[in-house]
């Protein structure tokens, strides 16, 4: 059959349409588009090679279409792993195509965004003379408090743990993301690491009572353990190769939808109790805000998927991220 491939504004992307067997899968369609782009037969500025990860096909939206609850309908994207017949595609039908741009793997992005903070923070701790003016140092030396040393160790341990989890624990449901995200995420993490590190390792740093810092960082290490255990639970949630949603269970997941975020936020809270700095608190709030948005979205999705109707499981009543608040 022949499919008309057009951009959302209606511009033809493949001249003469795309010929494909009606029994093909969505992945077959992506592969066909890939091979067309290799032959430079796709009308996209710059003639990029369209690997499957950077392609997005959607069904054209019927004008004025609304969802069940009266909101404006969103276009349906063709999902990898499905068949073209699942979308009732017939000869002569139109598909909207979007080039998602240059893609980069999740593992690559995660590695670089965590490597920065892991390396930058101790650099400030070990090389203060390069950063702070002579007038702030005492006899050319930067005064050091014990809490600064263990905070540096904690910080780098935290990001080293994240890198190891990226390689050995996490299972990514998506393979890639746009390359812009690499720049955005790296700027966020690298800049915050420098910001926090600059003030916590400052020659004029005022430490809180060491007894407090010691216990707070010990508590933060427990939160790290809880976070790691939560990630292991999430990684083992679904059988190998399966993409179906499962209700997370076990440990704190029995009470909170995103228990991993709970541990993460509490860990940063305890880090701030130990080091007491405005930049650290800002970092906690920035991360906490983003994680809360993700958690609310995940909670909604789980409640929608497990609605208890037609034999489907009912999602249990749980907190979203930070008991007892939300």
């Amino acid at each position: 059959m022949k499919l008309v491939i057009a951009s959302r504004s209606g511009r033809l992307v493949v001249d003469g349409g795309l010929h494909i067997d009606a029994g093909e899968t969505v992945d077959g369609l992506l592969a066909e588009m890939h091979s067309l782009s290799l032959k430079k037969l796709v009308r996209i500025p710059g003639k990029p090679i369209l690997v499957p990860e950077r392609q997005r096909f959607t069904l054209p939206l019927v004008p004025g279409a609304v969802t069940a609850d009266g909101k404006k309908a969103r276009p349906v994207a063709l999902a990898s792993g499905k068949k073209l017949s699942d979308y009732n595609l017939k000869d002569g039908d139109t598909l909207h195509f979007k080039d998602l741009g240059q893609q980069v793997g999740y593992v690559t992005v995660f590695f670089w965004e965590y490597f920065g903070p892991m390396a930058v923070y101790p650099l400030v701790y070990y090389l203060p003379k390069l950063l702070y003016p002579e007038s702030m140092l005492q006899n050319g030396e930067c005064p050091r408090h014990p809490v600064q040393a263990i905070a540096t160790a904690y910080w780098s341990f935290h990001f080293a743990k994240r890198i190891l989890e990226t390689f050995f624990v996490h299972k990514f449901s998506h393979g890639t993301m746009p390359i812009f995200n690499l720049l955005r995420n790296c700027s966020y993490y690298w800049a915050f690491a420098a910001f926090v590190s600059y003030f916590v390792n400052h020659p004029l740093y005022t430490p809180p009572p060491f007894e407090r810092s010691k216990w707070a960082l010990a508590g933060a290490m427990l939160m790290q353990a809880g976070n790691l255990y939560s990630h292991v639970i999430l990684a083992n949630l679904r059988p190998k190769g399966s993409k179906e949603y499962r209700v997370p269970r076990g440990f704190l997941f029995n009470y909170v939808t995103c228990a991993n975020y709970t541990f993460e936020i509490l860990g940063w809270l305890l880090f701030n109790v130990a080091t007491q700095s405005i930049p650290g608190i800002l970092f906690m709030f920035a991360g906490g805000y983003q994680m809360t948005l993700w958690a609310i979205a995940k909670h909604k999705r789980l409640k929608r998927t497990f609605d208890g109707k037609e034999g489907r499981e009912k999602y249990p009543r749980r907190f979203i991220i930070l008991p007892p608040l939300i």
């Binding site: 003030f199 005022t206 007491q276």
Partner: peptide, 9 residues
């Protein structure tokens, strides 16, 4: 200015 309890300038 530093020093202060909130470690910020």
């Amino acid at each position: 200015a530093m020093p202060n309890a909130w470690n910020f300038s």
